[in-house]
Computed example of a mutant assay.
Amino acid sequence: MNPVSVLLLGFAMSTDAFAAAIGRGAAMSRPRLSQAMRAGLIFGVIEAITPVLGWLLGKGASRYIEAWDHWVAFGLLLGLGLHMIWNGFKPEPAEPVDEAKQHGLVGLAVTGLSTSIDALAVGVGLAFVDTPIAVVALVIGLCTFCMVTLGIMLGRVLGAMVGKRAELIGGVILIGVGAVILYEHLAG
């Protein structure tokens, strides 16, 4: 993967966290920068760890499917991208949430983990291609930190509609990264 693909992957992986952060920011009464950075740090660390875990799982299985590895990576990224696009079209739940629980450490960690499942699957897919997982994980974590911090601060202004659009864009980017991986392997 080239540096542009890694950066695009980092931003694609952070879009669902960005969408969640916008929702959180919209639900908070006047979020402070320190609150936004705390949430960004929690989300970023979780989002950086999960692709490494997925990569380790994928490395264990890679020797068995080496001939199809590029197709596996493409299929996983395609599936995740389509899932993100599907979620981008689903309406937001209208149930009220307890703000103290939602913005506490456990609430942030659970939300961060739920938005990082796709990064776990991407890590599995990246195990089948020659990718420096530490660099990819760091980029994903940093992108997520920045996007969540920004999302919370913009949440009151932008609301949930932009969050849904961000998830749609992230899904399209994931599909594009998968197509680039497939193209680079088949052309090389």
Score class of each variant (00 low, 15 high):
2 N>W: 09
3 P>V: 13
3 P>S: 14
5 S>T: 12
6 V>D: 07
7 L>V: 15
11 F>K: 08
11 F>M: 14
13 M>I: 14
17 A>K: 03
17 A>I: 03
17 A>C: 07
21 A>V: 00
23 G>K: 00
25 G>Y: 00
26 A>E: 05
27 A>R: 01
29 S>F: 05
32 R>K: 12
36 A>W: 04
39 A>V: 02
43 F>T: 02
43 F>D: 01
44 G>P: 11
45 V>R: 01
45 V>E: 01
47 E>S: 15
48 A>F: 09
49 I>P: 10
49 I>V: 15
49 I>R: 08
50 T>E: 04
53 L>M: 03
56 L>H: 02
57 L>T: 13
58 G>Q: 03
59 K>R: 14
60 G>D: 02
60 G>N: 04
62 S>P: 07
65 I>F: 15
66 E>I: 10
69 D>W: 05
70 H>C: 04
74 F>V: 14
74 F>H: 14
75 G>P: 09
75 G>S: 15
78 L>D: 10
79 G>Y: 09
79 G>A: 14
80 L>Y: 11
81 G>K: 10
82 L>T: 15
83 H>Q: 13
84 M>L: 14
85 I>Q: 09
85 I>L: 14
85 I>C: 12
86 W>G: 14
86 W>Q: 15
86 W>C: 10
88 G>A: 12
88 G>K: 11
90 K>A: 06
91 P>F: 03
94 A>L: 01
96 P>C: 03
96 P>W: 02
98 D>Y: 07
98 D>T: 07
99 E>F: 06
102 Q>M: 03
106 V>Q: 05
107 G>I: 00
107 G>S: 01
109 A>C: 06
111 T>I: 00
112 G>W: 00
113 L>G: 05
117 I>S: 03
118 D>H: 12
119 A>F: 09
120 L>D: 04
121 A>M: 11
121 A>L: 13
122 V>K: 10
123 G>A: 06
125 G>Q: 07
130 D>G: 12
131 T>H: 05
132 P>T: 05
133 I>D: 02
142 L>I: 13
142 L>G: 11
144 T>Q: 08
145 F>A: 11
145 F>G: 09
147 M>Y: 08
154 L>G: 03
156 R>K: 11
157 V>Q: 06
158 L>H: 01
160 A>Q: 08
161 M>Q: 09
161 M>P: 08
163 G>A: 01
163 G>R: 00
164 K>F: 02
165 R>D: 03
170 G>Q: 08
171 G>V: 10
172 V>M: 13
174 L>V: 11
175 I>S: 10
176 G>P: 04
177 V>R: 07
182 L>Q: 09
182 L>C: 10
183 Y>T: 07
184 E>Y: 08
184 E>L: 06
